[in-house]
Amino acid sequence: HIGDLEEVAKRFKIKEICVSQGALTKTSFVKRLQELKRPVRPLKAGDKLPIMGNHLQVLYPQKVGDGGNNDSIVLYGKLLGTSFLFTGDLEKEGEKELIDSYPNLKVSVLKAGHHGSKGSSSEMFLNQIQPSIALISAGEHNRYKHPNEETLERFKDRNIRVLRTDQDGAIRFKGWFKLSSETVR
């Protein structure tokens, strides 16, 4: 979600804004981007983003979508020997496309799709990628009541440790030779 994009741009130096190609089909979004006067880079599957002497690989979307939740950019990478999957607002239909394209995909840390909504982190998806940690980004007392209890139960049934911004605050991973996590409230 980009509801506070302009506020973020006031407080942080933004070199480039990365978006899915489908997001550029939304004229209201394109207008907001133009007003920010920052370079915009549309991403597609196969692109790579440098980070910490390594890179994150764009796994999804593989085609131009409609700019909706299942047009979210999905990033995969190994940082400090730990595999991460960042799924944006991806829901179960997008998760199915993703695992159909990458049937051997396994990850240690999953940034759960769509704030842990009922329609994300499906059983099939979790069984395939087998994360040990799930990160859920959700505002405290949000109007959508994210994360959903059924989704949390799916994590619990698989012994997946859950870290939530609504309860735990900011989540930070740190390390030099070994990665560890901590929450900051």
Rank of each mutant, 00 (worst) to 15 (best):
L163D: 02
G116I: 13
L105T: 07
E140S: 08
L98F: 09
G119K: 12
D100W: 04
P131V: 09
Y102N: 07
G175M: 05
K145T: 03
D89G: 08
S101G: 13
G113C: 04
Q167M: 06
R172P: 01
R172V: 10
S181V: 04
S117L: 09
S121G: 11
Q167V: 01
S181H: 08
F155I: 03
D166S: 02
E149L: 08
L90I: 15
H114S: 06
L179H: 03
F173W: 11
K156H: 05
I129M: 03
P103W: 10
G169T: 02
T151M: 06
W176V: 15
H146F: 10
M124L: 11
K111W: 13
E150H: 13
E97N: 11
N148W: 05
K118M: 09
A112R: 10
I171D: 00
N142R: 08
K96S: 03
E150V: 13
G113A: 07
A170E: 13
I171Q: 00
A170Q: 04
E97R: 15
S121R: 07
G175T: 04
S181Y: 09
Y144I: 03
I171H: 00
E149M: 05
R158S: 06
R158F: 03
S132E: 14
A112I: 07
L163E: 11
T165Y: 00
W176Y: 14
I99F: 10
G139F: 05
S120M: 04
P103M: 13
P147R: 00
K174H: 08
K111Q: 12
Q130L: 12
A134Q: 13
Y102Q: 05
S180V: 11
R143C: 06
T165V: 04
F177T: 15
K145I: 04
E97A: 12
G175L: 08
Q128E: 12
E93N: 01
G119W: 08
K156D: 08
L105C: 04
D166E: 03
L110Q: 15
R158H: 11
S108P: 07
K96C: 02
S132D: 14
K92D: 15
N127P: 11
D168C: 04
E149A: 05
I133W: 01
K145G: 02
M124D: 12
G113P: 07
I133P: 01
G113I: 05
G139A: 07
L98R: 06
K106H: 13
S120F: 05
F125K: 14
S180M: 12
N127R: 14
T183C: 02
Q130K: 14
G139S: 07
K174Q: 10
T183F: 00
K156P: 00
